[in-house]
Structures are given as structure tokens and as C-alpha cells.
Design a binder for these strands. Structure first.
Length: 152
DNA sequence: GCCAACGTTGGC
DNA sequence: GCCAACGTTGGC
């Protein structure tokens, strides 16, 4: 079972919003970056775990965990002209963008702040630091061990 | 709000 | 296929 880091801007959709969603479950849509899309569509599997990361806010960092409860499926918002995520160039028979559904698992008592992650030498080769803008990232087993220590 | 880094677009 | 221009992301 793999672990992933998903970024979100809490002003748009926070871990609290996920918790408050029906069944603590929500669609993770609006991914519009090809590298992130490829991970979603080709690598991510049902039951994988997601570490949620809040960006563009006062307390930037990892805020909790969720589980992927569906395989990737075409993101319906790409065909919705009313949606901010509408993509006129995506066709039904060749969908360009994918999404998954997530179920909230835990919200950390205290977030693991980016400022603290930066202080841990063993974490400096995380994708988070090497590809700062990628909104869907793998987390290696080695890094997971270290992160688990930070929340226990 | 600023700005650096990065991704996308489009003319050639 | 190159690359300049432009748009977006995200920490601070």
C-alpha cells in the first residue's frame, strides 16, 4: 500500500471540509497538471493512504490523513462548462483529467509544519522539496517511517 | 503583495 | 522542436 501527499488550499477545501463531507468522503477533483494526472490515473490505487497538506495559508504543512476509496475515474468537472475546471479540449471518449474519492481518516492534533520538515535532514530529498509545485506526490517508505515518528 | 520557480502556449 | 511570453503556484 502506497502513501501519497495531496496538496490543498484550505481556503478552497480543507481537511475540516473533508471531515464534514457526507460520510467524511469527498471527490478530489480539479487536478490540472499532467504529472499529477499521470500519478492519479496510472499509479494510485484504492486503499492507498494520503497525507493531506495545506498550502497557501498561515500554518503550511501536513494536517492529517485520508484513504483513497475509489480507483481513478474521469473528473466530471472537465466537461462542466459552469465549472472553474472546465476543459473544452477534453472529450468524453478520451478524458484528459482524472480524480479519486477520499475518505477522512485522521486530523493531526498539531500539523507537521513545513518549517519543521525543513529541519529534518533525512527528509530533504522528499518530492515536496524537489518539486515544490507538484500537487500529487509519492512519499517513499523511508520518508513515511520518519513522518510516522513525528505524529506518534 | 512580492517574487522565484515552474508549467503551458503558440509562433516560427 | 525551439524558445519567448505568459500564466500559475506557493512560500514568505
Amino acid at each position: 500500500m502506497a502513501h501519497w501527499l495531496f496538496k490543498t488550499e484550505p481556503s478552497e477545501f480543507s481537511i475540516g471540509d473533508l471531515y464534514k463531507s457526507p460520510g467524511h468522503t469527498a471527490r478530489w477533483d480539479g487536478i490540472r497538471n499532467y504529472q499529477a494526472r499521470n500519478l492519479l490515473r496510472d499509479e494510485i490505487e484504492q486503499d492507498d493512504l494520503v497525507w493531506l497538506y495545506h498550502s497557501q495559508c498561515r500554518a503550511v504543512g501536513l494536517v492529517g490523513m485520508a484513504k483513497i476509496i475509489t480507483p481513478a475515474y474521469p473528473d466530471p468537472s472537465q466537461w462542466d462548462p459552469e465549472s472553474h475546471y472546465y476543459d473544452a479540449k477534453s472529450s468524453m471518449d478520451n478524458p484528459r483529467w482524472y480524480c479519486v474519492d477520499l475518505c477522512h481518516q485522521t486530523t493531526f492534533e498539531k500539523p507537521i509544519l513545513l518549517a519543521d520538515l525543513k529541519k529534518i535532514a533525512e527528509l530533504q530529498d522528499m518530492t515536496l522539496f524537489k518539486q515544490g509545485r507538484l500537487s500529487v506526490q509519492p512519499i517513499s517508505a523511508h520518508h513515511i517511517k520518519i513522518l510516522h515518528r513525528l505524529i506518534s
